[in-house]
Amino acid sequence: MASINKAVLDLKRLDLLANNDSVIHRLDARAKVLVTCVFILCIVSYDRYELAALFPFFIFPAVLIALADLPALFIARKIALLCPFVLVVGIFNPVFDREVLVYLGPLGISGGWISFASIMVRSVLTVGAAFILVGVTGFTAVCQALERLGMPQVFAVQLLFLYRYIFVLSEEGGRASRARELRSCGRKGLGIRSFSSMIGHLLLRTWQRAERIHMAMLARGFTGQFHAYRQSSFGKAELLFVLGWSALFVFLRINNVSRYLGTLITGLFT
C-alpha cells in the first residue's frame, strides 16, 4: 500500500509538471503524441541483438527533458522502477541463449546477455518516452489529443472521470487501509474477510458517488452530449516538430550512428 501511496504522489507530481510553460509544453498535444508513437515504433523495430544503435535515440528524451525543464532525476528514478515483468522475462535470455557472440578479451558475451541489455535499453527508452509525454503534455491534454486523433468520445470522457477520481478515491482507500492496519495488531485482521468487507464498503460508497456525480451533471444541464471547449491548433511549429523528429528517428533507424562513430574512433586508435 505504501508503494501505491507513493505511486499516487508521483502521479500528482508528474501531473503538475504539465503545468510548466515551455516551448515543448506549448505545442499541440497531438504533435507530441505522434512523435512519441514514431519514436516507440522505431525503437521496437530493432532486432533483438541490437544494442549500440539504440543509444543515439537517447537524444530525444535528453532534448525534451532539457527544453521542457523536467526534473531529470525524478524521471530517471521513475524509469528505474521498470516493470518487473520485463526484468523477469529478460533475465531468461542469458539462460537460454548462450551462444557467445562477442569476445571482449577473454570474456565471452553471449547473445542472451546482449539481447537482455537490449531489452533493458528498450525499456528505458519506451517507458521514458511515455513519462516524458505525460510530463510535457498532461494527462488531460493527451486524452483530448487522442480523442481528436479518433479515439471515441465516450472512452475519452470516462478516462477523464477515471483520472479525476483516482485522487479522491485513492485517498479514501488509503484512509480505510490505514484504519485497518492500526486496529489489526500484527498480521491478524488483515486477512481476506476484513479485506472484502472493506473493499465492499468502498465499492458501495464509490457507487453512490457516481450517482451523485451524475446528478450534479444533470443539474447543470447535461443531456448526454459532451462539449469540447479548448481548441488548440496544429500549426507550423507542430508540423515542424513532428516532421523534424520523425526524420531524425528514421535516419537513426537506417544508419547505425553508433557504429560509424565507433569505427571512426577505434580506427583512429590503431
Binding site: 501505491i4 478516462l159 472521470f161 478515491l169 482507500g173 468502498l202 457507487w207
Partner: peptide, 21 residues
C-alpha cells in the same frame, strides 16, 4: 459514463488495500 470512470478509479483505490494470503 461517470460510473465507468469512477469504478476504474475505484480499482486503483482498491489496490491500495492488501490482504494476507
Amino acid at each position: 459514463v461517470p460510473l465507468m470512470g469512477v469504478l476504474g478509479a475505484f480499482i486503483f483505490a482498491a489496490q491500495m488495500i492488501n490482504f494476507t494470503i
